[in-house]
Design a binder for these strands. Structure first.
Lengths: 160, 160
DNA sequence: GTTTCTGCAAAGGTTTTGCAACAAA
DNA sequence: TTTGTTGCAAAACCTTTGCAGAAAC
């Protein structure tokens, strides 16, 4: 976990007169131990590998705080569950492409598209607050060769 | 309801050896009687104004079919419920901007952004399937004058 | 000492499903 | 007739919440 995370969280908690607890520490540690996107339940499992006593309710409550202070962002991957993305500190304007074949999620950032979104928003009479692009697409590798390296990896992972 | 809707649905049902039923007719009629986005439950209410016996389960099941044959599209408005958009027949590549103040949803279409999304997708090694942009923003009207015409309208609507 | 926080279990809300009766082809 | 469809109620699922005891400050 980077120093930046620790510092921003402490400032946030102090500013709202909230407390730093053992549970919140563990949850933050788990959330930023990975670059992967995760669900509340994924995080609960990660947390319980560190401390088995932390409850699901506390994970949900802490996720709310982490989103509020912009350490995490909620993202939609089209899977009927909210995912959380810990990579917005490093790449503040990135977006997501989801492969319809293997489910792989690719992050991409593009300044032209960000600028264009901004122009469109202003032209419509608004001040931009947040923007997100969700692309679904299929691997060219798969349509060419009939299989996709990541699909194999994903299957192996699921059957573990 | 346009002829196109009727025709595409009939073809779809025929191609999958599914049946045309009274309930499906009523649901399609209700769904395309508006340009507004709606939830499953909104649609259920609209449907019941035509035929009180149609069940919520059938509405859900039919929504699935309508999405499958691309007559409707699921959209995320950031409200923890799936919304359905009946306007993709007229504007096949539009996106949504949601006002963080009044909740107003503005549809916009922009060929430059669509093209750019396509380029990015291909550059990453994928074949585009579907793309969507979600923008949250606040009315300039509101930050200038302290109120927004649509906010008033929305409040009136909610208190009805 | 106060006030916030936690875990538990229960409740909430949306969507899906099993099943027997019904309706389309 | 055969096969798909419906309504009902129950189940499934994720997320939130009330509360009493525990922990932070």
């Amino acid at each position: 976990m980077t120093e930046i995370v620790r510092q921003r969280l402490d400032e946030f908690l102090a500013s709202k007169e909230l407390r730093r607890t053992k549970q919140r520490d563990v949850i933050v540690e788990a959330a930023f131990s990975t670059k992967e996107h995760f669900t509340a339940d994924d995080l609960h499992e990660m947390v319980r590998k560190i401390d088995r006593t932390v409850s699901r309710a506390t994970v949900y409550r802490t996720l709310g705080l982490l989103v509020e202070c912009s350490l995490l962002r909620e993202i939609e991957l089209g899977r009927d569950q909210t995912y959380y993305d810990p990579n917005f500190l490093d790449k503040p304007e990135h977006n997501h492409l989801v492969c319809t074949d293997c489910g792989r999620v690719v992050e991409f950032q593009d300044e032209h598209i960000a600028l264009l979104e901004d122009c469109i928003t202003r032209r419509l009479g608004f001040t931009p607050a947040s923007k997100s692009i969700h692309i679904e697409a299929s691997c060219e590798e798969l349509s060419r060769s009939g299989k996709c390296g990541y699909q194999v990896a994903a299957l192996a992972r699921d059957h573990r």
